[in-house]
Simulated scan of single mutants.
Amino acid sequence: MSPTILTIIISSLATGTIITMTSHHWLMAWIGLEMNTLAIIPIISTMHNPRSTEAATKYFLTQAAASAMILFSSMINAWQTGTWNITDLSYSPAHILLTMALAMKLGLAPMHFWLPEVLQGSTLTTALIITTWQKLAPMALIYMTLNNLSTTALITLGLLSSIVGGWGGLNQTQTRKIMAFSSIAHLGWMFTITSIMPNIMILNLMIYMIMTTAMFCSLILSKSKTIQDTTEAWTLSPMLTVVMMTLLLSLGGLPPLTGFMPKWLILEELVTQNLTSTAIIMAMSALLSLFFYLRLTYTTTLTLSPNTAQTKFKWRFKPNHMTLLMGASSTMTIFLLPMTPLILL
């Protein structure tokens, strides 16, 4: 792809998200979402093979259906209330339809089936964009319409997503599919707390994006597309294997790493609101996710794959990737837990 076309596509991707996040009118929000979707389709299909074409088609059809549902919900709300303002979503069928549409856009269970398939057909860099940047616009719409959305629907979707995200990742051998189910589980945690404490939801989204960016950067650097590939990461850089191990444990939510912070705050808030059974189910679903993170940790740091190459070390071949983003995001993924008291103030 030529630099000019890539620049136009990336700027359209960013502009679409910003338009959605800053708009007050439903049509402008819809236009932003459409720009976002149309900009990422060429990025997904750059590989020019059947798998990437299939991924781009699946992504387009799902996002187009979700955008149509958003437009339909805003139209029936405008028909009933006479306003197109995003914050005035008072008609009940409209906000239920909107919740389902945004869940489909984000890849929440039970509308999650497209996400693992699309990530598997994309490159690791494209998968990083889909799991981080593409979540911003729908989450912004949820934050803006929060006062009118059904708490029961949000908590149900959150619970279902955290369970499905944990359960679905157990049987996977592809790192992109594991990260897809990880995304579904993390979004489930965000949805569960959304209507109770929106500030914790935003904190969780920020930490999730930092952790996922760090993890994908290390996978891109070590070219690890399957679990077996992670066993060879130490030949590139022994330090990279240590960093990957701590990143995976942080994603799993183990203390004293950053990933523990949002889970801790969410469980504490759920118990405070007398939603103890919800908190127990969420904690149990976190154990499911933790299992496949620990499996990846084990293969990365403690196992050695059969090696037919003449040389044991790849470190002689210096990787030409920029490691600044990886360094910054990895540091935040590992060391941010002591900041929790400052966040709570």
Rank of each mutant, 00 (worst) to 15 (best):
S2M: 05
P3Q: 07
L6N: 14
I8W: 08
I10G: 04
I10H: 09
S11I: 02
T15V: 11
G16E: 10
T17I: 15
T17G: 07
T17E: 02
T20W: 08
A29L: 10
A29S: 14
I31Y: 01
E34P: 11
E34R: 06
N36K: 13
I41P: 07
I43S: 02
I44S: 07
S45M: 09
S45Y: 03
H48E: 15
P50M: 10
P50Q: 14
R51C: 02
A55H: 00
A56G: 10
T57Y: 04
S67I: 13
A68G: 13
A68F: 08
I70N: 05
L71H: 08
M75A: 15
T83D: 06
L89E: 02
S90C: 06
S90R: 10
S90N: 11
P93R: 13
A94M: 08
H95C: 02
M100R: 00
M100W: 12
L102W: 10
M104E: 01
K105E: 06
L106N: 09
A109M: 05
F113V: 10
W114N: 05
L115T: 12
E117Q: 11
T123A: 11
T125M: 06
T126P: 05
A127Q: 08
A127I: 01
L128A: 11
I129R: 01
I130S: 03
T131Q: 09
W133T: 08
W133M: 12
W133Y: 15
Q134L: 15
A137T: 09
A137K: 12
A140D: 10
Y143Q: 12
Y143R: 03
M144G: 01
N148I: 01
S150P: 05
T151I: 14
I155L: 08
G158T: 05
L160M: 15
G165P: 03
G165M: 00
G166D: 06
G166M: 09
G169N: 04
G169C: 07
T175P: 03
T175G: 02
K177I: 01
A180T: 09
A180N: 09
I184Y: 05
I184M: 09
I184R: 11
H186T: 11
M190P: 00
T192G: 09
I193Y: 06
T194S: 14
N199K: 14
M201A: 15
L203W: 13
I207Q: 02
I207D: 00
T213Y: 06
T213P: 08
F216T: 04
L219C: 01
K223V: 01
S224T: 14
I227W: 03
Q228T: 14
T230D: 00
T231A: 06
E232Y: 14
L236G: 09
P238V: 07
T241A: 13
V242R: 10
L247V: 02
L247P: 00
L251I: 11
L251C: 07
L254E: 03
L254P: 00
L257G: 07
T258C: 05
W264G: 01
W264N: 03
W264I: 01
L267H: 00
Q273A: 15
I280S: 02
I281Y: 03
A286Q: 07
L288K: 06
Y298F: 12
T299Y: 13
T300K: 07
T301D: 00
T301V: 10
S305E: 12
A309C: 01
Q310T: 15
T311G: 02
K314G: 12
F317W: 10
K318T: 15
M322Y: 06
T323G: 05
L324N: 14
L325Q: 04
I334Y: 06
L337F: 14
P338K: 03
